[in-house]
Design a protein around this nucleic acid. Structure first.
Length: 570
RNA sequence: UGGCCCAUGGUGUAAUUGGUAACACAGCAGUUUUUGGUACUGUCAUUCAAGGUUCGAGUCCUUGUGGGCCAACCA
C-alpha cells in the first residue's frame, strides 16, 4: 500500500532523454522522434553495436517515434550483401523492428551528387589534384591547396569528368572549401568525393566516384528527416562538419548526439582484431561462442532479452564504459533461471555402486522440471544400482564445510534416495575409481518416512541409461580485464622514450575452450538445436548447431554461481 | 603540439537542475532451500585536487591533475 507511493514518478532520464525533453518543450522539431541505426555492411555486429541499436530504438520507442535501419554503404571496397543479411538477422533476433524503413546511403547517391554540385556552384567545393602526401603536408601546415581557388565552372566540369570516369583512382578528389587554419582538422578542407572504379554491392557499376562519410552521413540523416542522430563519442569532432554541410545547403538539420561505446571486461570489440582472431585460428569464426558478436553470443546461448537487459542496465553517458562481465552473466542467469528446464548431467563421471540395491532393478524417479515455474511440469528419470556422479562430489578428505559424498557420510541423491558411503576403490596412483554406497530404502524422495538426514544433494545419472554428449566449456577469451588497454614504454631508433599499445594477443586465454564427454539423463536425446537447459548444480547449456541426433553437442552458456568455490578456498 | 570530450563506491548508471548521495552488478556477513542455484535480510562513498561564488555545491566559476578522441581518397 504505502510502498507504492515511493515508486511513482521516480523514473530518471539519461542525458540524451534530457535533450529530447528539452527539444520537446522548445519545439525544436515539429515531429515525433526519428532515430536511425546506420551500420556499415562490412562485418558482423557485436555487443557494442547492440548498445547502439538499443539506444536508438529505445529512445524512439520511449517518445512514441520510429527508428530507421540504414546501411551506410559508401565504400564499395569493403561492403558486401552477405553482411547486409547477417546484420538484418541479428537486429531482428535482438527483437527490434525497422518495419518498412530500410534504407541504403547508396539510395541517395544521385541526390548527394546534386548537393555537391550545388556547393561547387557556390564556390564552396573544388577539385583537387594534389597527391595525398601533399594534402597531408598542407593540412599540417595550414596551407591552402593551389587548386583551391579555381573557377567554379571549371570545377563543375571536372566533377562531371570524374563522374564520367575520365580519371583513374586517386587522381583527384572533391574537397570542401572551409578553413585551412581551423583548430578542428576536419574543417581543413575535408575531402568528400573520391574516385573508385569499383563495383558496389547495391549500385553495381553505376558510379566510379563515391561520397565520404562526412558528406553522406549528415545529408542522409537530413533526407530521412532524422531528429536525433545518435553515434559514438569518436564522432564528436565530426559534428562541426556535419552541421556545416547542412547549414551551407540550407536543408533540414537533425541533431547529432554522441554517447560512449560499450566495452566489456575480458573482451575486445575492435572489428579488425576480432577478424584477426578468426584468421589466426584462435576462434572458429564470427559465431564462435567465445566471440562478443551477436551471432557468437546467440550460439553460446545468451538470450536476446538478457543482452538487452544488460545494455539497459549499463545505461548511456559520455564516460568511457568498462563494464564488468559479471553484469552480463547476471542478466543471462536471471533470464535462463526462469525459462529453462532442469536436467541432470554429469561432466566428469565417477561411478557409484549401491551395494544393497537389487541388481537389474530400475525405478522411475519423479523430478520437477523447474522449481521457478510449476507449469513446466515434471519428468521421470531412471535410477539404478550403478550411477554416475561428479568427480568433484566425492572426496576422501572432506573440508570442514563439506556437504557432499565422503566415506561414512550421508547424501541425498536429487529426487531419489539418501545414500551412505561405505567405501571406495582407488588405483595405485591414488585416483578414485569407484565409490560404494548403501541406500536407505525408506528415504525415497517425496515419501521420506525415515529419520535419516543428509546435508547435501547431488545430481546423478544412471550408468545403464546415460547418454553421451560432447560438452564445450567456454571461458573468457582473455586473461586480462582490458586486453586492449595496456601501454608499454620503449625507445625508438633515436633512443627517444615512446609508448605503444601492448599486443592484445599477449593476454589470450589458452583455456578458453575445453571439451568434455558428459553423461546425461536419457530424456536429453530429444534436445533440439538452440534449446537451453539448466544442468542442475552446474550451469546453463544449449544445444549447438554442430549437434545431431547421434552426436549431441552442448555449449555451456554460463556456469551457475558457485559459492562453494569460495568457501573451499578458505 | 593543437583542438574537442569526460571525471560520483570495485564496476556501471542516477540525484526533482543549487537543498545534504540513490539503484543495479560484484564483494562481505547471515536467513531459507532435496540445485553450495533461486529468493530474502544486513553491510560497503564526505562525488579527482585546490581555490572561489553561495545560508547551502556532486551540480556554477577558475586553475590544476588524470583519462579518452581527432590530424585515412575508412566509417
Amino acid at each position: 500500500m504505502s510502498h507504492e507511493i515511493k515508486e511513482e514518478g521516480k523514473e530518471t532520464l539519461n542525458f540524451i532523454e534530457h535533450i529530447v525533453e528539452e527539444h520537446n518543450k522548445s519545439g525544436r522539431f515539429n515531429q515525433k522522434v526519428l532515430t536511425r541505426f546506420p551500420p556499415e555492411p562490412n562485418g558482423y555486429l557485436h555487443i557494442g553495436h547492440a548498445k547502439a541499436i538499443c539506444v536508438s530504438f529505445d529512445l524512439a520507442e520511449k517518445y512514441g517515434g520510429k527508428t530507421n535501419l540504414r546501411f551506410d554503404d559508401t565504400n564499395p571496397s569493403t561492403e558486401k550483401t552477405d553482411f547486409v543479411n547477417a546484420i538484418k538477422e541479428d537486429i531482428k533476433w535482438l527483437g527490434f523492428d525497422w518495419e518498412d524503413r530500410l534504407y541504403y546511403t547508396s539510395d541517395y547517391f544521385v541526390q548527394l551528387y546534386e548537393y555537391a554540385v550545388e556547393l561547387i556552384k557556390k564556390g564552396k567545393a573544388y577539385i583537387d589534384f594534389s597527391s595525398p602526401e601533399t594534402m597531408d603536408y598542407e593540412k599540417r601546415l595550414g596551407r591552402e591547396s593551389r587548386f583551391r581557388d579555381s573557377d567554379a565552372e571549371l570545377n563543375l566540369f571536372l566533377f562531371e569528368q570524374m563522374k564520367a570516369g575520365r580519371f583513374p583512382d586517386g587522381f583527384c578528389a572533391l574537397r570542401l572549401k572551409i578553413d585551412m587554419q581551423a583548430d578542428n582538422w576536419l574543417m581543413r578542407d575535408p575531402l568528400i568525393y573520391r574516385v573508385k572504379h569499383e563495383s558496389h554491392h547495391n549500385t553495381g557499376n553505376d558510379w566510379c566516384l563515391y561520397p565520404m562519410y562526412d558528406w553522406a552521413h549528415g545529408l542522409s540523416d537530413s533526407i530521412e528527416g532524422i531528429t536525433h542522430s545518435l553515434c559514438s563519442l569518436e564522432f564528436e569532432v565530426h559534428r562541426e562538419l556535419y552541421d556545416w554541410c547542412l547549414i551551407e545547403l540550407g536543408v533540414y538539420q537533425p541533431q547529432q548526439i554522441e554517447f560512449s561505446r560499450l566495452n566489456m571486461s575480458y573482451t575486445i570489440t575492435s572489428k579488425r582484431k576480432l577478424k584477426d582472431l578468426i584468421e589466426t585460428g584462435v576462434v572458429n569464426g564470427w559465431d564462435d561462442p567465445r566471440m562478443p558478436t551477436i551471432s557468437g553470443m546467440r550460439r553460446r546461448g545468451y538470450t536476446a532479452n538478457s543482452i538487452k537487459n544488460f545494455i539497459r542496465r549499463a545505461g548511456v553517458s559520455k564516460r568511457d564504459q568498462y563494464i564488468d562481465l559479471s553484469s552480463l552473466e547476471n542478466c543471462v542467469r536471471e533470464d535462463l533461471n526462469k525459462s529453462t528446464p532442469r536436467v541432470m548431467g554429469v561432466l566428469n563421471p565417477l561411478k557409484v555402486v549401491i551395494t544393497n540395491y537389487p541388481e537389474g532393478q530400475v525405478e522411475e524417479m519423479h523430478l520437477i522440471n523447474n522449481p521457478e515455474d510449476e507449469s513446466m511440469g515434471s519428468r521421470k528419470v531412471p535410477f539404478s544400482r550403478e550411477l554416475f556422479i561428479e568427480q568433484e562430489d566425492f572426496t576422501t578428505e572432506p573440508h570442514k564445510k563439506w556437504r557432499r559424498l565422503a566415506p561414512d557420510r550421508n547424501v541425498r541423491f536429487k529426487g531419489a534416495y539418501i545414500l551412505h558411503c561405505t567405501g571406495f576403490k582407488s588405483s595405485e596412483s591414488g585416483a578414485i575409481e569407484e565409490v560404494y554406497c548403501t541406500y536407505y530404502e525408506n528415504s525415497k524422495s517425496g515419501s521420506d518416512i525415515s529419520e535419516i538426514k543428509a546435508k547435501g544433494t547431488l545430481h546423478w545419472v544412471s550408468v545403464e541409461h546415460a547418454i553421451r554428449a560432447e560438452v564445450r566449456i567456454y571461458d573468457r577469451l582473455f586473461t586480462d580485464p582490458s586486453p586492449d588497454g595496456h601501454k608499454e614504454s620503449y625507445r625508438d631508433e633515436q633512443g627517444k622514450k615512446r609508448k605503444r599499445a601492448v599486443d592484445y594477443k599477449t593476454f589470450l586465454n589458452d583455456e578458453s575452450l575445453r571439451t568434455v564427454s558428459a553423461c546425461l539423463e536419457p530424456g536429453m536425446t530429444h534436445a533440439k538445436e538452440g534449446e537451453s537447459f539448466q544442468f542442475m548444480r552446474l550451469g546453463y547449456f544449449c544445444v549447438d548447431k554442430d549437434s545431431n541426433p547421434g552426436n549431441l553437442v552442448f555449449n555451456r552458456t554460463v556456469a551457475l554461481k558457485d559459492s562453494w568455490a569460495k568457501i573451499s578456498k578458505k
